[in-house]
Write a protein that binds this DNA or RNA. Structure first.
Lengths: 130, 130
DNA sequence: TGCTTACTTGTAATCATTTCAATTTTATTA
DNA sequence: TAATAAAATTGAAATGATTACAAGTAAGCA
């Protein structure tokens, strides 16, 4: 649950991602607003503090963070992607009536998604290493 | 796994969805191509048989079928939605290298999504019924 | 068969996301 | 600390999936 930003900045360094002002602010925002915010929400949330902030920067930052495995993207049943700093395995529930929600519910649909590397690509990777 | 189209057409009738030629063809396509096709794929797959078919119709049909619970939409890590006639609970695996895949894999990310009705909306629904 | 209603179609609009080129910042080296 | 190279930021423009809309067409029922 808890994410220490110090650990994250270290990971950024490990991944050769520069610690720009904007990137740190986006991370901080995700850490403080654990509601799976959209780019729009992040943009407005940081607008006062960084009036020059561009949405493109937010997109770039999030894509970098996803690549590094520090952030997860949620793209279920919405035309807008949502971003989650909690990369642990956990479920997401959405009420189809009020479109909000979390605990205690009647479930109509369940979906599991896995991302990883398949055996064939695994094998080829081994060859490359040696 | 198996889906009998007869049962589906009956369900369409139950849901007051008219059994148009186009709708039945889209359903048949989904039944025969269980690879989570995109709208683009359905469109090209049916183009020869129905040259006048419009993408809008495919979108309309799919949305109706989703509403009726006969089809599920998959929107993970792609800008294009994919559609699945198998509405049973089952996992989806995608290889992050070759972008295909199914069985036997090294997993990096896992995601569970639930859709249903939360307690508050459940309660309000009860009130409406009585 | 005729009638009402809903569906289909193609075009145009919408809107999230990406591309791109110019500018600015970061991190490094002297 | 100043100079430098590489990478990040910015905003405008492009992209592309999806939806809105209005006119024509087909489905289902009497």
């Amino acid at each position: 649950m808890k994410t220490n930003l110090e650990g994250i900045t270290n990971k950024l360094k490990d991944n050769n991602i520069r610690l720009s002002h904007q990137r740190l602010k986006v991370l901080e925002y995700l850490d403080r607003h654990r509601i799976h915010p959209t780019v729009e929400q992040i943009y407005h949330g940081l607008n006062e503090e960084i009036p020059t902030l561009s949405k493109t920067t937010i997109y770039n930052t999030l894509n970098k963070l996803i690549e590094a495995g520090l952030v997860k993207v949620i793209t279920i049943e919405d035309n807008e992607a949502r971003y989650d700093i909690n990369t642990d395995f956990h479920g997401h529930f959405k009420c189809r009536t009020c479109e909000k929600g979390l605990d205690g519910f009647r479930i109509y649909t369940r979906d599991m998604y896995f991302s990883g590397i398949c055996p064939r690509c695994s094998e080829q990777e081994k060859c490359k290493d040696s």
